[in-house]
């Protein structure tokens, strides 16, 4: 018999905040994954909403390609407000 698949668990700690990844667990289906997530990750009111996602459904970037993926942003200082030197007398900008 197949093993129970792995699910990633995301919890929203309170309304107004995003769901955040908090770990994973095994469950036979989505309903059980939600129930287990409740018992494992929200025993002390840590959440008001839970997402579970089959781990196999997540596509992740490859850290070995971090250079070409993320470094191009590094030499684009013009995307930051501090790049634009303006007179000190200028207010509210």
């Amino acid at each position: 018999m197949k093993n129970w698949p792995l699910w990633e668990v995301f919890i929203r700690s309170k309304n107004g905040l995003e769901h955040r990844h908090c770990g994973s667990l095994h469950a036979s289906d989505a309903t059980m994954a939600l129930e287990n997530a409740r018992d494992v990750y929200t025993r002390r009111m840590e959440g008001v909403s839970i997402w579970v996602v089959p781990s196999s459904q997540i596509t992740a970037s490859n850290p070995e390609l971090n250079g070409e993926t993320f470094e191009p942003a590094m030499d684009k200082a013009y995307r930051h407000p501090t790049f634009y030197e303006l007179p000190d007398e200028l207010k509210h900008m």
Binding site: M1, K2, N3, W4, S28, D29, M32
Partner: peptide, 13 residues
């Protein structure tokens, strides 16, 4: 129990 839960999940799917 683990097998039964898995069989149920597969049937639902």
């Amino acid at each position: 129990v683990r097998n039964a839960a898995m069989a149920y999940a597969e049937k639902q799917e």
